[in-house]
Computed example of a mutant assay.
Amino acid sequence: MDDPRTQRWLRRAFVACVLFAFVMALLPRPPALPGAPGDKVQHMIAFATLGCLAAAGWRDKPVIVLFAWLAVFGAAIELFQAIPALHRDADWVDWLADMAAAAIALFAVRQVLDWPR
């Protein structure tokens, strides 16, 4: 997992997922997902994915730094969703769901990757 090519791939995947999440969060009517998961579930899936990719892609960064990046990103999404022209609803509980999922994913992935061999 410490291979530079793997790190680059994980970082690119992270950036792609950030862009996808941002676009989906700002679409006035995002497409329906299979199983119709609720808004909080969608937020948690997105931020768990981002947390996993960040923890694996930036092994040299402390988890708290990665968590801070994701917290700022989650807050930015909620601030943009508060723009009336976007026809979205900002909800700080969504941000709390984002942070919970990100924290669990970050710590879990780091625990697995740092597991003694």
Rank of each mutant, 00 (worst) to 15 (best):
H87Q: 15
L26E: 08
I45G: 11
D91A: 10
W69I: 02
M1T: 03
V63N: 02
W58L: 03
A54P: 02
V109D: 10
A102N: 11
R5K: 14
Q81K: 06
D98S: 04
A54H: 01
D98A: 05
L33P: 06
K61A: 15
P4T: 01
M44E: 15
P37T: 04
L66E: 11
I83N: 09
A101W: 04
R5Q: 15
A13T: 11
F107N: 14
D39R: 10
I83F: 12
P4E: 00
R5Y: 12
V109L: 12
L86A: 08
V23C: 01
A105P: 02
A32W: 06
G74L: 01
V112K: 09
A32C: 04
G74I: 00
E78V: 02
V93T: 14
Q81G: 07
D39W: 05
A68E: 08
F67W: 15
K40V: 12
D89V: 14
A46L: 08
F67R: 11
G51W: 00
L10W: 02
A108W: 10
D3I: 06
D60H: 15
L33G: 04
A71I: 10
H43P: 07
D114R: 14
C52I: 13
L70W: 00
A100W: 10
T6I: 14
R88P: 02
I45Y: 07
P37Y: 04
F47W: 10
L66T: 10
R88L: 01
K61Q: 15
V72F: 11
I83P: 06
T6R: 14
D91I: 09
M99A: 12
R110F: 05
T6P: 05
G38H: 01
D114Y: 07
D2S: 12
L79I: 15
V63I: 11
G38V: 00
L70T: 02
I77Q: 02
A76T: 15
L86H: 09
P30E: 06
A97Q: 06
A56Q: 02
D3G: 06
P37D: 05
A103I: 09
F14N: 04
A97E: 08
P37H: 04
D3A: 10
A46F: 07
M24R: 02
A108R: 04
P28N: 03
P84C: 06
P34I: 02
A97Y: 05
A71T: 14
A36I: 05
L50A: 10
F107R: 15
F22R: 04
A82G: 15
A68Y: 09
E78K: 03
P34R: 00
A108P: 06
L86R: 09
A90C: 13
L19C: 14
D94A: 05
R117V: 11
A97L: 05
F67D: 07
D98K: 04
A16Y: 11
A101T: 08
Q7N: 01
A100S: 13
P37I: 03
W92N: 00
A21W: 01
M1H: 00
I104Y: 13
P31N: 07
R59F: 05
K40L: 13
A32S: 13
C17D: 13
I64A: 12
P28Y: 04
F20P: 03
V65S: 12
F107M: 13
A102K: 11
R8L: 13
A97N: 08
P34E: 02
H43W: 05
